[in-house]
């Protein structure tokens, strides 16, 4: 589930204009993903850590989040070094690990973590409704804005419905086992949730129509860009661009 664990802080990053944060996160993610030199990627990783430190996030929660996402990365370390051709560094039985494969796995790990850290530092430090407004102000289509917010809003409601059905199953003595009956019961549960979600979406739409909704999402309050925001934005954009130029001009 989506919980607002990092939104309550009062760091400099928390107060930063969310529109700029989204743009920086996007720019950072694209440039980092396209980088292919270890020193450059390492610099982006350090930059992401600096952003995390400035935003004073709760480390315990942050590490637990990182651990979950790095489980996927672990598979890369099991596969990539042994499947990439290049200079052999070591071998386990008949499996040979190449230097290029190891470097590639390291690059992916650093890139992945840098992007996640930067996004957590910048985006999860805002409540979801501020982000919704920010993407609306950045000119995203209304349908996209609605999807973005309504998915978050009703994920909780549908999760509650799931808990309700699950508890009802338990109350009637259901114990999940590895058998056809269990699979069928779970299939019923998912089908039920889908139907309920569909019915709910119809009701929500009706409620919106009754309050004059015609497809346009109006905003009550507008963001005010401060000089401080512009200054910080220019600094971070310059840092990212400089790193990008240095690596692609083959200075590194």
């Amino acid at each position: 589930m989506i919980y607002n664990d990092f939104t309550s802080g009062d760091s400099f990053i928390h107060r930063f204009d969310p529109r700029i944060k989204i743009l920086i996160a996007l720019f950072f993610s694209i440039i980092t993903a396209l980088s292919n030199k270890i020193p450059a990627i390492l610099s982006f990783f350090v930059l992401a850590i600096i952003l995390v430190l400035i935003s004073k996030l709760k480390f315990k929660i942050l590490f637990s989040r990182l651990t979950i996402v790095n489980i996927f990365i672990l598979f890369i370390w099991f596969i990539l070094p042994f499947s990439y051709p290049g200079k052999i560094v070591f071998h386990i039985g008949s499996l040979q690990a190449s230097r290029e494969g190891l470097i590639n796995a390291l690059e992916i790990t650093l890139k992945y973590n840098a992007i996640i850290l930067c996004n957590i530092a910048l985006l999860s430090t805002n409540p979801i409704f501020q982000l919704t407004h920010a993407i609306r102000h950045l000119g995203a289509p209304d349908k996209f804005v609605h999807l973005f917010f309504l998915i978050h809003r009703y994920a909780f409601v549908i999760f509650d419905e799931y808990k309700c059905i699950r508890d009802a199953l338990r109350a009637r003595g259901f114990r999940p086992k590895t058998n056809f009956f269990t699979y069928r019961t779970y299939a019923y549960l998912v089908a039920n949730l889908l139907l309920k979600s569909y019915e709910r979406s119809e009701q929500v739409h009706r409620a919106m129509i009754c309050r004059g909704f015609t497809g346009k999402y109006w905003v009550l309050e507008h963001f005010a860009l401060k000089w401080r925001d512009i200054f910080v934005a220019i600094t971070i954009f310059t840092a990212i661009t400089t790193l990008a130029i240095i690596q692609w001009m083959k200075i590194l």
Partner: peptide, 15 residues
Amino acid sequence: FCPSIEEEIAFGPLN
């Protein structure tokens, strides 16, 4: 369905 109470109430009038 809105993110804050003031927006929830504003939804109708703004529309």
